[in-house]
């Protein structure tokens, strides 16, 4: 038995290891960078165009991506562990909801939506606690952002107040 016949983990493991996916991420970044560079003028070292510096950066992405790929190939490190995905997705959704609601329904409702949806991410809380939280945060935002800092944050929808 030779040592070179040492067992390689299956390709699937390599690709889903942290360094394998990391390498893929860097290659993706390189692809995005070069596709943008392709639209830009390169110029020369003494008179650089807008594409010169980004092209160098794209090259670095490829270099670091290759190093990570070799690492992944040689010893695929820990498998990916993203943790519970559902709570994270709920929080992301809550932010989108805020952005959409703010224009049409005003800040107070948008804050309520953000709080209620993001609160779903951590269960076992009472309705009373949530109601107090919503009320407390709205009052706090109104006091600090609207009254004290005088920001243009519309609590009510603008179509109602103007």
């Amino acid at each position: 038995m030779t040592k070179t016949a040492r067992q390689r983990p299956p390709l699937r493991h390599i690709l889903t290891s942290k360094s394998g996916l990391g390498a893929l991420l860097l290659f993706l970044a390189a692809a995005v960078t070069f596709s943008e560079v392709a639209k830009l003028r390169l110029g020369t070292a003494s008179a650089m165009g807008p594409g010169y510096f980004p092209a160098l950066l794209g090259g670095l992405f490829v270099l670091f991506g290759l190093i990570l790929a070799v690492e992944a190939w040689q010893k695929p490190d820990e498998r990916l562990n993203p943790g519970p995905l559902k709570p994270a997705l709920l929080v992301m959704g809550a932010i989108v909801l805020f952005a959409l609601l703010y224009r049409i329904a005003g800040g107070a409702l948008a804050i309520t939506g953000l709080l209620v949806v993001s609160a779903l991410a951590e269960p076992n809380r009472t309705l009373k606690e949530l109601a107090l939280l919503v009320l407390g945060v709205i009052v706090f935002v109104w006091l600090v952002f609207v009254l004290a800092l005088d920001l243009q944050f519309d609590m009510l929808p603008t179509w109602l107040t103007r």
Binding site: A94, L114, L115, S118, L133, G136, V137, F140, V141
Partner: peptide, 9 residues
Amino acid sequence: PAILVLVVI
């Protein structure tokens, strides 16, 4: 949730 509101606003 409170931190989230502060960050967004």
